[in-house]
Structures are given as C-alpha cells and as structure tokens.
Nucleic acid binder design. Structure first.
Length: 222
DNA sequence: GGCCAGGTCAAAG
DNA sequence: CTTTGACATGGC
C-alpha cells in the first residue's frame, strides 16, 4: 500500500470535495443492523420511516421483533419496500441474536472477522454487502463494504475488471490503510459520488463536475 | 408516468 | 460461475 495510488487518492479527493458524510448515526448497533437490511435496494428516506415506526412501537429490539406478529412487523416496515421479505429477514436476524448470542451482539463482533462474517452470511437475507456493512458500522471491524455504486465507479476508473464483489473488495482493502473510520467514510463518499455523478443512465452522468473526472476512463458503465 | 433506490435469493444456462 | 426475475414502496 502506497500513499500515491489512485484508490487512496480518490478517497482524499472525495473527502476534500464532499466532506464527511456522517453515515449511520444509529442509537444502537441493533438499530444499525435493522437499517442495513431495510435499506437493501431501497432509498434511505423510506428506511427512516420504517425505523421510526419500529421505534415508536417499541419494536426496535430483537426480542420485541420476535414477539411481534408477522402482520404487525410487515405493517410497521411497509414504507421500506419488500416488506414481506424484510419482515422475515428481521425475524431471522433477531432469532440468530437471541438464540446464538443470547442477545449480546458483542459476542458476535468479538469473534474473528471472517468467522463473524460467515455467521452473518448464514442468515437467509443477509448477503455480502449487508454482512460487511454490519461488521463495519455496527461491529466497527475493518471490513471494506462494496456496493453497486462502488462497482460502477471502480469499473469506470479502471480499478476493477470483473465487477465481482470479492475482487473489488480485495483491491480497495489492499490500497487504503486499515482504518475503521476511513473505511466508513470512504464507502459513504463512494455512495455520494455514485448518486450525484455516476448514474446508470449515461445521459445523466455529469462527468464535467465530477471530482474524479480526470481519473475516469470511460462514460460507459459495466 | 417511468426510473431508481446504500441487495438477496432461487432457478436456470 | 454468471445471468435473470421477483420482491414493493416512495421521491423526483
């Protein structure tokens, strides 16, 4: 890892342009995990409505989620979309926490990262991005999160070839310092860049104002 | 009205 | 191992 590589310089440029993004100011690690599931392919504004509803009904807790009926849970999280699937996923997550961890999340996060990651991935409804988001933002473990924006941006910068999650994760991990706040901030900045400058529709790509314009190799997306 | 959003899974080539 | 369809609401 050298301080002059593109992967690291991109982080510096993005932070300089956009500033800290202040992601995931959840009041608890469990709330953060709930948000990670509810935000799957969904706008965060919709997730906020669902989390607020859960909180106001005192269901923002693994035991309370298990105690709730499917109908009640689905109703509370409906604004976040895919509400039947996500209600099921929240119950599976809660079951794991209650049954495997006795309700104590630290039991999970204190384990070796790969073991904790595998444990999360064993839950139906938790894939690589959700697992890694949980490890990074709730567990504060140094795991680089890859999402659709990161894949698209990395492709345009010529950083990755295949567009696979694992490859992108390896490359980002190898080229930035192992630092939890940096990982948290970099991921949030990539999402910010993706939303505002690197959209799927090429006609909407505002490459002229893009902070990484000079590094961008193509207008095309993978 | 159409596109998109801080993905994942099962089924199929 | 890669691709495809289903899942669903709300904002612009």
């Amino acid at each position: 890892m050298v301080a002059s590589n593109l992967v690291y310089r991109a982080y510096v440029m993005l932070l300089d342009r956009f500033g800290p993004q202040g992601w995931w100011p959840a009041e608890s690690d469990f709330e953060m995990m709930v948000g990670a599931i509810l935000t799957q392919n969904t706008a965060w504004s919709n997730v906020e409505k669902a989390i607020t509803a859960l909180r106001e009904n005192s269901r923002l807790d693994p035991f309370e989620i298990l105690a709730a009926s499917d109908e009640e849970l689905e109703h509370l999280i409906r604004p976040s979309g895919y509400y039947r699937q996500k209600a099921d996923r929240l119950k599976r997550l809660s079951s794991m926490i209650v049954e495997d961890l006795e309700g104590d999340l630290d039991t999970l996060f204190e384990r070796p990262v790969l073991a904790a990651r595998d444990h999360l991935l064993s839950i139906k409804g938790i894939g690589p991005e959700t697992a890694d988001s949980i490890l990074l933002y709730a567990g504060r473990r140094p795991v680089f999160v890859i999402d659709a924006y990161t894949l698209r941006i990395a492709g345009r910068l010529g950083i990755t070839q295949t567009g696979s999650y694992a490859q992108a994760q390896r490359i980002f991990t190898r080229n930035v310092p192992v630092d939890v706040p940096l990982y948290q901030e970099y991921h949030a900045l990539l999402v910010k860049l993706g939303k505002d400058y690197c959209r799927k529709d090429r006609n909407r790509c505002r490459c002229a104002d893009c902070p990484l314009e000079a590094q961008c190799e193509t207008d095309l997306l993978s």
